[in-house]
Amino acid sequence: MAAEQRTNVQLIDAWLEWLQHSRGRSERTIEAYAMAMKKLREFMENRPLLEAEPAELELFCSLWLHKKGIVARSRVPYISAVKGFYKWAKASRLVSDIVHPKTGRPLPNMMSLANAEKLMWGPDLDTFIGIRDAAMLALMMGCGLRVSGLVGINESHLSNVQIEGQLRMVLKVTEKGKKDRLLPVPKEAEMLLRVYMAHEEMSEIDRDLPAPEGRQVDRVLFVSVRSTKLTADLHRGENRRLTRKAVNDMIKRYGKRLDIPANELHPHAMRHLYGTELTEGNVPTAAVQDLMGHDDIKSTSVYTHLAARKKFSAVDQHAPLAKMKTPVSELLKRLPPSS
């Protein structure tokens, strides 16, 4: 049977049979590899396994498996299965290249929308620090910023554009790879930023940055209010810039107080939420790629797999079981009322 005529299941069965009879692998190994390849078929969404690209397999072995609850150290058999299958496919002249996916590091969980909302209500808006923190949280959630991009913002990175007769704020951010990108700032984040920048305490803080001759003075946007290492005369300008550690500590401090799970209390958890919500809102993948600053669109495609809510909603509303009376209706009557 020609390779192009064989289904994914037939190819996997042929490989597993070869492992068992030609390589003498144990029944337990065969079962583990079969389970791993079943997950790979799920990830590929019925596309031919022989058409998988290395970036896709890296994605499967890292973030996708992580979202399925499989931690880094437990991904080893999955990676061994993927490597073994494509090595066999290469030897069988079914593919031209051998791929080598890696375990990677454990990735932070995506923050849930409910916990993101709780976190936004954490800061005390009657204080300067609270307004500053709320503005930072709003930018991370509303723009999908990496923490390096957040702390690197200066006032000159904010500008206004006319959109349908209204002035809207735009943010120029520099992050991974030192590449700039322009991001629309959501109205809620814009309002918090404007309140923060107009706060009376900001006028008392020296956050000016050295400017070349003839250039307008720029200013650090997110400032620290105190320093345990610097004297008052040195705690100014660039030294006023908030650090990445301070932002991480801030998120954990509010999150712990609000009983948000520790594995969601990370800037990247909010970035994953941003990408997933855009995808669930049917924003085209290319637009999500641009907004998130991904070099490779394969890095963006993971949010298609994470955005499960719309799939569940579609099935609940339109699949055959949703349009008929089933035994479940009677079973539900036997359940005790919820407290």
Rank of each mutant, 00 (worst) to 15 (best):
28 R>S: 10
61 C>T: 13
173 V>G: 04
193 L>T: 03
321 L>W: 14
255 G>R: 01
26 S>I: 07
100 H>F: 10
291 L>M: 15
212 P>G: 06
92 S>A: 15
113 L>R: 12
22 S>L: 02
9 V>W: 02
82 V>Y: 03
164 E>L: 14
264 E>A: 00
5 Q>I: 08
100 H>V: 11
268 H>I: 04
106 P>D: 12
136 M>L: 11
248 N>C: 07
231 T>R: 12
327 P>N: 09
299 S>E: 13
243 T>V: 04
316 D>N: 13
279 T>P: 03
56 E>F: 02
204 E>V: 08
117 E>A: 15
172 K>E: 07
203 S>N: 06
294 H>N: 05
321 L>V: 13
25 R>I: 05
219 R>E: 11
74 S>R: 11
269 A>F: 00
244 R>D: 14
125 L>F: 08
161 V>H: 04
65 L>A: 11
250 M>K: 03
81 A>M: 09
163 I>F: 09
42 E>M: 11
255 G>V: 02
240 R>H: 08
62 S>N: 14
319 A>K: 01
29 T>L: 08
337 P>Q: 12
93 R>E: 15
92 S>F: 01
53 E>Y: 08
159 S>F: 07
269 A>H: 00
14 A>K: 04
75 R>G: 05
168 R>K: 15
241 R>I: 12
107 L>K: 06
72 A>L: 00
35 M>W: 13
74 S>A: 14
149 G>P: 03
109 N>L: 07
132 R>T: 04
174 T>C: 13
68 K>W: 04
228 T>D: 13
36 A>V: 08
302 V>N: 00
169 M>Q: 14
64 W>H: 14
153 I>K: 03
239 N>V: 08
169 M>K: 15
50 L>V: 13
69 G>A: 05
82 V>W: 01
210 P>E: 09
148 S>E: 13
191 M>C: 01
